[in-house]
């Protein structure tokens, strides 16, 4: 898993932010590439560019080994993300990919939990194997 962050700040500012603040939050500093997109070109291509403010919204994209975007989430600036949910989605997509698309993960799925095998036998029978309470189990 490779993580890349992008903002409109220059890579010089990325260095300052890393050195002066983030190293105090994360031992050893930021362990991934902090990319700079000062002209907003990358942000535009991903639909997260905010023209009025000249910034990029909190966009998060999970890209699979074929280069296909499997998931995206975009938040306006004042609300932060929840990393645990991103990790859960990555695990779910990785599971589905490993099954070569023969399995699907129901709502709230966590690694190790029941997966669904879509097919004629499952039509109308999901209720027998999956219940809403399982999402919060």
């Amino acid at each position: 898993m490779e993580v890349i962050s992008v903002s409109v700040d220059s890579h010089f500012v990325h260095k300052m932010w890393n050195d002066y603040e983030l190293t105090k939050m994360v031992e050893g500093g930021v362990p991934f590439h902090m990319a700079s997109d000062q002209a907003g070109n990358v942000g535009r291509a991903y639909g997260v560019w905010d023209e009025a403010q000249g910034i990029e919204l909190r966009g998060r994209f999970i890209i699979d080994p074929d280069g296909v975007i499997q998931a995206m989430e975009v938040l306006t600036p004042p609300v932060g993300r929840r990393m645990a949910e991103t990790i859960r989605q990555i695990q779910a997509f990785q599971h589905v990919r490993a099954s070569k698309g023969t399995e699907a993960t129901p709502a709230g799925w966590m690694p190790g939990e029941l997966v669904l095998k879509p097919g004629p036998d499952l039509v109308g029978n999901v209720w027998q194997v999956w219940k809403p309470e399982m999402e919060n189990a």
Binding site: M16, I63, P65
Partner: peptide, 23 residues
């Protein structure tokens, strides 16, 4: 960094409003 250099691996691409922002 070039995104296509990471073909064959999972990538998490995260945009954010700016360095030194609070959230």
């Amino acid at each position: 960094i070039k995104l296509s250099d990471y073909l064959g691996r999972w990538v998490l691409l995260c945009f954010y409003p700016g360095d030194f922002t609070f959230v």
